[in-house]
Nucleic acid binder design. Structure first.
Lengths: 340, 340
DNA sequence: AATTGGCACTCAAGCTCTTTGAGTGCCAAT
DNA sequence: ATTGGCACTCAAAGAGCTTGAGTGCCAATT
């Protein structure tokens, strides 16, 4: 079993290692922290920690560095719930202060989060599965080309260009539009697919091509609403912390470009209500991100949908700060979006 | 003056150096290329090239590498107009084959370009200054919140959320909407600003707040149409070619996140009609991109607007291939978008 | 039982020294 | 204009050495 003090030793090892990026030795510990015991005693404690695989030595005669398990223990039990710095609070207020447009808010949020953590920040768009149709617009662009626009009560807008072989009659278009609006408004994304299918079934052959194309486009758009989407910022920070990766940061940057990977990673993390959660090092190996840690939390959109946001960085990151930052930004964002 | 053969020597130095990333010596040149002269002769030629600052030696007794000026000469006079490989042609066809939505096409294009060049690819959205208003939609979201949607004949859609202190009367909204549509439809982005101002001036005090907010939002949206926007892909490729940068790739990644920088860089490049152009190394210094080269071309959107696209990578890049790829993709994209 | 000082031991990192070999510059001969 | 020859240069790689932070263990102390 690891003693109380040993855990304290683990804490300072994590802290010092993260701060200095150098293996931490017993002597350095007694110098920098007032444990009131000698270096030899710390060494004994470190032997315990090594026994438990919470720390390890890069080579026989050097200081120790935390293992993934050590970081895990630190995050779960040892990280102090330090509040954000005053500067960080101010940054949140000023950055997110005024703006109502969803795209805009999320863009600001992700930049903010990357700035106060110095990591890659990621914000997922709300999934909108429960979003209700507010309006459908059909707009002719040219003779053969029209635009379908889908608007939901969450303020999200999706458009799509539809191509029709023969010129489109304006009246037909108008009729189709009001029919779509009558039937779709108020229904949610799931229900809408069925409604569109029904409309297609009962259609006058004259309008067939038009209706077919338009309903198909709308169906696609509904499908897109389920597709999660995300915004990212601060990828350059990975280059700053390059040394923390054994090889190159190439695979990490690649994974970041594959947004699907991040969405899966996000979705597999368990985040309890109102909390914040971390996925550390090798825990992310299956995503090709075995040398990185991800810290995630939830926020609630105006429609009440949950979505995630968080940061990603090298396993050797400042967990205390990042946990606090992600938690604070998630809360602030929920408040910001929920105020209607 | 540099002799004919000397230029040929410069060509092989650029080619070999780009391929091997190692300084090229006289002996290696006579071995790999059949110049029919001895190494000593090549050395004399190299002395000429060095005199003209087209090549330089990293250290006294090593091979030579091209200077920025050498690359410039290569691009302007020596790069062979090699056609794309069959594989690359196929990639273009299959990647961009079917899809009409602008967002979608540009996204595919940028991915494609980054794939066939192994560089960072950048595609600018058409500027839409000449785009005409096709439709304006106002949609109530909640009592206090509504959405303004602006649709142009290019198929681009911009939306914005507007917040109003008091509940919005549906009839008022309807009236405002038809008024806006009547006056704005058909006018271009520039003219619309004036029209909106006029509407605001002649407004009944009852509607004042509503009209004010809505016109303001629309004005913002028009402004945004002038803001250029771009999509990017393949940033990970920078990490692959890390060694080509003296320090870290951090400043480069940072510049890439500042899209404004790229837009300025793009806009300052002179690209002649139907051509492709390169900006090499130090020529980009003022953008913090002194160790990178940018290859750009133009494409023409369906509305006839010009926009740029290109790739960015280390100065030591395969110019022949990248010039060909950018040219081909730009042409293909123009054709794809112009077919209405 | 926990803590401590002491001591031998280890090993990466940094230093100097040497060797190696690719490559140059120059010159006299062709 | 081209060439072979030759002395010279210098980065890179390797060997050998020193240094010092750090460990592990043990017998002595509290």
């Amino acid at each position: 079993m690891v003693s109380e003090r040993s855990l304290e030793v683990l804490r300072v090892i994590v802290q010092d290692y993260v701060a200095s990026r150098e293996p931490v030795g017993s002597k350095a510990i007694v110098e920098r922290h007032s444990f009131g015991v000698s270096a030899a005693t710390i060494r004994n404690d470190m032997a315990q920690l090594e026994e438990e695989e919470l720390i390890s030595a890069p080579h026989t005669s050097s200081g120790r560095i935390p293992t993934d398990k050590g970081y895990r223990m630190f995050v779960d039990q040892l990280a102090d719930r330090r509040p954000l710095s005053a500067a960080q609070r101010v940054a949140i207020e000023t950055f997110l202060g005024q703006s109502v447009d969803l795209d805009d808010v999320l863009m600001r949020t992700v930049r903010l989060l990357s700035q106060i953590t110095n990591q890659v920040a990621i914000v997922q768009y709300p999934s909108f599965a429960r979003a209700q149709v507010r309006h459908v617009e059909l707009v002719g662009l040219t003779d053969h080309r029209l635009l379908t626009v889908l608007i939901t009560d969450t303020g999200r807008v999706e458009q799509r260009v539809v191509e029709i072989e023969h010129p489109v009659d304006a009246h037909l278009l108008e009729r189709l539009k009001s029919r779509l609006n009558t039937q779709l408004i108020g229904s949610n994304v799931d229900a809408s697919a069925a409604i569109l299918a029904a409309i297609r079934a009962e259609t006058d052959p004259d309008e067939e091509v038009l209706v077919d194309r338009v309903t198909q486009a709308l169906a696609d758009q509904f499908a897109e609403y389920r597709h999660d989407k995300l915004v990212m910022a601060g990828a350059a920070n990975l280059a700053r912390t390059e040394d923390d990766f054994t090889g190159s940061i190439y695979p990490v940057l690649e994974a970041l470009e594959q947004q699907v990977v991040l969405l899966r990673l996000f979705s597999e993390m368990v985040v309890e209500r109102g909390g914040v959660s971390a996925s550390i090092g090798r825990e992310n190996e299956s995503f090709g991100l075995g040398e990185t840690s991800v810290i995630a939390s939830n926020y609630r959109s105006s429609a009440g949908e949950l979505a995630r946001l968080g940061v990603l960085g090298p396993t050797r990151m400042d967990y205390s700060n990042n946990l606090a930052a992600v938690r604070a930004v998630a809360r602030y964002l929920s408040r910001q979006l929920g105020d209607d």
